[in-house]
Design a protein around this nucleic acid. Structure first.
Length: 787
DNA sequence: GAGTTTGAAACT
DNA sequence: CAGTTTCAAACTC
C-alpha cells in the first residue's frame, strides 16, 4: 500500500498511504471533526505532511504513514477532544492548539470519568496503555539518540523523591481526583476496566502506572513522530532537574506531575524546545503552529489539571502530522484502552468511534468504567522483564520503573508511544484494544525490539501489569559492572530501560544513552540472535496455566536456550527453566534435572523440538528423566511453556501477555496436563487457541490474528507462552495471581518472535503492527523492517 | 544487609 | 567450539 509513496516519501507522507491509515479513516468519523479543527489541524497537517519525520527515524516508514494516518484520525480525535474540552471545562483558551484540545479532551474525559467514577484507573489507563506499549518500540525504531536528555540520569534520585511525593500525591490525587481533570486521574481509573481486581491502593498504583505509561506514551508518541517531543520531554527534565524525576514520577505517580512539575513555563519551554528540535529536522511550521495551538497557559493549565498528559497532547498536536499520529496513538491508545475497559465494563463505545472518538468517549466511559488497573504502560519486552518481575514493579509502582525510566528518558517514552501508536494504528480497531491492554507492562523498555515491545506490550502486558501489578515489588537490576548493557542486566535483557527501582551503577541503559543501548543490543543480537528472545514461551496460559501455573512468566527477553544447571537440579531460580515455570526441554543441558515443571525427556525434547523447529533444535535431551510423572509434567510444561528459540530475526512483535508471573514458590509443578494436548508441538496454535480463550474480549481477536502470523509460523519464534522466561521477571510465586482469570489472560503471553534490533531501529511500526496483528498491519510493519 | 552460591553471559 | 572468566541474580546466613 505504502510502497510507492514510501519510496518517494521519506517517512512522513507514507502514513497516508498505509492501509491502516485508510482503515482508520474509514473507522473513525473523523472528518467532521477534522473540519472543526481544520483550521489549526489543517495547518498542522500540512506541515506534518510536508515534513518528514524520517530523518530521525530510519526505520519507521510506517510510522510516518501511521502518522499521516494518525494525523487524520488524530484530527478526529481532536475534534472529539475539543468537544471534550468543551465539556470538560478546561480553561483552555479557545486559541489552544489542537494538541491542547486533545489534552483537554483527554482531560475532560478523564474528568468525566473521574467524576463519574471516582476510581482513578479508568480514563487514564487507556492512554497509558497505548503509550506504554508503543514507546519502547518506538525508540528503537527511531533509534534517534535524541534521548540524550540528560535529565533522566539524575532522575532516579529525583524519582525516588518523586515516589515519595507520588505516594503523597497519589493520596492527594485520590482525594482530588475529581478535582483534577488530569489524565492521570483518568488513567488511574481506566485500568480498572481491565482489572478491578486490585484494591484501591493497588488501583491507585496501577493508575499511576497507567498514568505514567500514558504520559510516557504520549511523550513517546510525540517523539516518534518527531524527536522533538522527546527533546521536549528531556528538556523539561533538564529545565527542571527535578522535573525529570517529577515528570516521570509524577507521571507514574500521576497527579504530582501536574502539581509539581510544571511550571507552566517549563512545559512550554520543553514543548517548544522539543518542537524546535524536531522542527529543525522536520517542520518549522508545524512547530510554530503547535506552539500556537498550545498556549503556554493552556499547557500549564493542562499540566496542572491533567498533569503531564496535557503536555503530551499538546506536543502531539503541535507536531501536527506527527502530532496527529501521536495523538491518534495516544487517543487511540487511550481509546483502545478505554475501549477495552469499556468493553469489559461497558459496551458503550462503538467500534467506529473507537479510533478517534472512541478515545474521548472512551475516556468518558472509561472513566466510568471502573477498571482498576490497566497498567499498560510499559511494555515491552521490557516488556518482558519489566513486565515480569520487574513488570510488577512497573505495574505496581506507579512510579513504575519502566515508566519512570521511560519518563526519564524521553526516548523510552517515545519509543513506547511510538510503539503504541503503531499498535494503535495497526490495530486500528480491535487490535488496538488488545494491544492497549498488553501495553501496560512494557515498562520503559526501550525495546529495542519494537516488535516485542509493541506486541508484548500489547494486551498481555497490560493485563500483566494489572495482574502483576499486585505482584511483587518491582525489583530491578543491580548491575555494577555491566553498565546494564549486557544480558546480565535484567532490564537490558528485557529490553527495558533501567529505572528507579534499579540499583545499578554506571547504568547506561537509559533513554539518554539510547544509541549506546541500541548499538549494544545489536551487537549482542548479532552475536546471539536469540539473546533477547524470550526463553520460554508458554502457549497455554489460559486458565489452566493460571491454575496450575500461577506462574505465568512473561516471556523474558532472554533466550531460550535451555538451562545448564548442575547443582540446582533445576529446582531453583538459578535455573532459567524453573524460573520461567517451564519444564526443561531437550535443549537443556542440565544435570540431575528435577525440574518440577517438567523434566527433560525425549518426549519433551520432541515437543520442544517441534516447537522450536525454526529455532533451536538442540539436542535431544534427555538427560535425565527421572520420573515418568516428571516426564509427563515436562511434556505438559513443555507444552505450556515452550521454549522457543525465538529467532529474533524477523521483527516480531511480542504480544505477550505475559503477565502473570509464575508463582514459582508455589510452583506448581508442571501443570500436569494441559488441555492443550499433546501435540504441544505447535505451541503456536495451542497458544493461539489458548490465548483466544484467555484473552479477554478484545484480545481474542487480536491474538487470533497475531497468533496465526507469529505462532503459526514455525520458523518464527512464534508466540510462546512464556511462563516467565526469567524467573526474576516472573516473580515467583504469586499465588494470588492464579485467582483472576483476567490475569490469566494476561498470563498468556504470546511472545512473538523477538524482533531483531534492526527491526527496532527500523520499525517501531513493525512491532506494533505485528502485535496488532492485522494482517495488513503486520504486513506493513514487517514491511517496514525488512523492506 | 553481607556473604556465598549458582549458572548464564561474556570473553579468550 | 570449548574452556575460562566475569557477572549479577538467587540464595543463605
Amino acid at each position: 500500500m505504502d510502497t510507492p509513496d514510501r519510496a518517494a516519501l521519506p517517512a512522513s507522507s507514507r502514513a497516508e498511504d498505509s492501509p491502516l491509515f485508510g482503515f482508520i479513516d474509514s473507522m473513525s468519523p473523523i472528518e467532521p471533526l477534522k473540519s472543526a479543527y481544520s483550521t489549526n489541524s489543517l495547518q498542522a497537517y500540512q506541515s506534518l505532511s510536508i515534513t518528514s519525520i524520517s530523518s530521525i527515524f530510519t526505520s519507521p516508514h510506517h510510522n510516518t504513514q501511521k502518522e499521516s494516518k494518525l494525523s487524520k484520525s488524530s484530527f478526529a480525535d481532536f475534534n472529539e477532544s475539543e468537544v471534550c474540552t468543551d465539556h470538560s471545562d478546561k480553561n483552555k483558551p479557545p486559541s489552544s492548539s489542537n494538541a491542547v484540545r486533545l489534552f483537554a479532551c483527554t482531560s475532560s474525559i478523564t474528568e468525566e470519568t473521574h467524576t463519574a467514577t471516582s476510581s482513578v484507573n479508568e480514563g487514564i489507563v487507556d492512554p497509558a496503555k497505548g503509550p506504554n506499549d508503543l514507546p519502547q518500540p518506538g525508540r528503537f525504531e527511531s533509534g534517534s539518540p535524541d534521548h540524550n536528555t540528560t535529565p533522566c540520569h539524575g532522575v532516579r534520585s529525583d524519582l525516588k523523591q518523586d515516589k515519595r511525593r507520588k505516594s503523597e500525591a497519589v493520596q492527594t490525587n485520590k482525594n482530588t481526583l475529581e478535582n483534577r481533570k488530569c489524565l492521570f486521574s483518568s488513567n488511574i481509573q481506566l485500568p480498572d476496566g481491565c482489572q478491578p481486581e486490585e484494591g484501591n491502593g493497588e488501583v491507585l498504583g496501577c493508575d499511576w502506572e497507567d498514568l505514567v505509561s500514558a504520559t510516557s506514551g504520549e511523550l513517546l508518541a510525540f517523539d516518534d513522530t518527531s524527536t522533538v517531543e522527546d527533546h521536549g520531554g528531556v528538556r523539561l527534565a533538564v529545565n527542571n532537574a527535578e522535573s525529570c524525576g517529577f515528570l516521570l514520577s509524577e507521571l507514574n505517580g500521576g497527579c504530582d506531575i501536574s502539581d509539581r512539575t510544571h511550571p507552566i513555563g517549563t512545559s512550554q519551554v520543553y514543548y517548544h524546545e522539543m518542537v524546535m528540535e524536531e522542527d529543525k529536522t522536520e517542520n518549522a511550521q508545524f512547530f510554530s503552529e503547535g506552539q500556537k495551538t498550545m498556549s503556554g497557559e493552556e499547557m500549564q493549565d493542562n499540566l496542572n489539571e491533567d498533569n503531564a498528559c496535557i503536555p503530551l497532547g499538546c506536543k502531539v498536536e503541535t507536531h501536527q502530522q506527527r502530532g496527529t499520529r501521536k495523538r491518534c496513538l495516544v487517543f487511540e491508545a487511550a481509546g483502545y484502552s478505554n475501549r477495552t475497559v469499556q468493553k469489559e465494563s461497558v459496551g458503550d463505545l462503538t467500534v467506529s468511534k473507537l479510533k478517534g472518538k472512541s478515545v474521548a468517549q472512551n475516556h468518558t466511559n472509561p472513566g466510568k468504567t471502573p477498571s482498576p488497573r490497566v497498567l499498560r504502560g510499559i511494555g515491552l519486552h521490557l516488556n518482558a522483564l519489566a513486565l515480569t518481575s520487574k513488570d510488577k514493579i512497573v505495574c505496581q509502582d506507579p512510579l513504575s520503573t519502566a515508566l519512570v525510566p521511560s519518563v526519564k528518558t524521553e526516548q523510552d517514552m517515545h519509543g513506547n508511544l511510538l510503539s503504541a501508536g503503531e499498535n494503535f494504528v495497526h490495530s486500528s480497531g480491535e487490535l488496538l484494544d488488545l494491544q492497549m491492554d498488553n501495553d501496560d507492562c512494557l515498562a520503559g523498555g526501550f525495546l529495542g525490539n519494537d516488535h516485542i515491545s509493541s506486541q508484548s506490550s500489547s494486551p498481555q502486558k497490560k493485563r500483566r501489569k494489572s495482574d502483576n501489578g499486585d505482584d511483587e515489588s518491582c525489583k530491578r537490576c543491580s548491575c555494577k559492572k555491566s553498565k546494564c548493557l549486557k544480558l546480565y542486566c535484567e532490564c537490558f535483557a528485557a529490553g527495558v530501560y533501567c529505572s528507579e527501582p534499579c540499583s545499578c551503577l554506571g547504568c547506561l541503559n537509559k533513554p539518554i544513552h539510547e544509541e549506546i543501548v541500541l548499538s549494544t543490543r545489536k551487537q549482542i543480537e548479532f552475536r546471539n540472535p536469540l539473546a533477547f528472545a524470550p526463553k520460554v514461551i508458554r502457549l497455554s496460559d489460559a486458565g489452566q496455566e493460571t491454575q496450575e501455573d500461577p506462574n505465568n512468566t512473561p516471556a523474558s527477553a532472554r533466550h531460550k536456550r535451555g538451562c545448564n544447571c548442575k547443582k540446582s537440579s533445576c529446582l531453583k531460580k538459578y535455573c532459567e527453566c524453573y524460573q520461567g515455570g517451564v519444564g526443561c526441554s531437550s535443549n537443556c543441558r542440565c544435570e540431575s534435572c528435577k525440574n518440577t515443571f517438567g523434566m527433560r525427556d525425549g518426549a519433551v525434547s520432541v515437543e520442544n523440538e517441534e516447537m522450536k523447529q525454526g529455532g533451536e533444535q538442540t539436542e535431544s535431551c534427555g538427560k535425565e528423566k527421572e520420573n515418568d510423572e516428571q516426564k509427563a509434567n515436562v511434556h505438559n510444561g513443555d507444552h505450556q511453556l515452550v521454549e522457543l528459540g525465538v529467532p529474533i530475526t524477523p521483527p516480531l512483535a511480542i504480544s505477550s501477555s505475559l503477565l502473570q508471573q509464575p508463582n514459582f514458590s508455589n510452583a506448581k509443578p508442571p501443570r500436569p496436563s494441559k488441555p492443550r494436548t499433546g501435540s504441544s508441538s505447535r505451541p503456536s496454535k495451542a497458544a493461539a487457541s489458548v490465548l483466544s480463550h484467555k484473552i479477554p474480549k478484545v484480545a481474542n481477536s487480536v491474538f487470533n490474528e497475531e497468533v496465526p502470523d507469529i505462532l503459526t509460523e514455525p520458523a518464527s519464534p512464534g508466540i510462546v507462552k512464556t511462563s516467565s522466561p526469567n524467573g526474576k521477571r516472573v516473580s515467583p510465586p504469586h499465588n494470588s495471581l492464579s485467582i483472576s482469570p483476567s490475569r490469566r489472560g494476561g498470563r498468556k503471553l504470546i511472545l512473538k518472535s523477538i524482533p531483531s534490533f534492526p527491526s527496532l531501529l527500523g520499525d517501531t511500526s513493525s512491532g506494533s503492527a505485528i502485535s496488532n496483528s492485522n494482517s495488513a498491519f503486520t504486513e506493513s510493519s514487517l514491511a517496514l523492517g525488512p523492506p
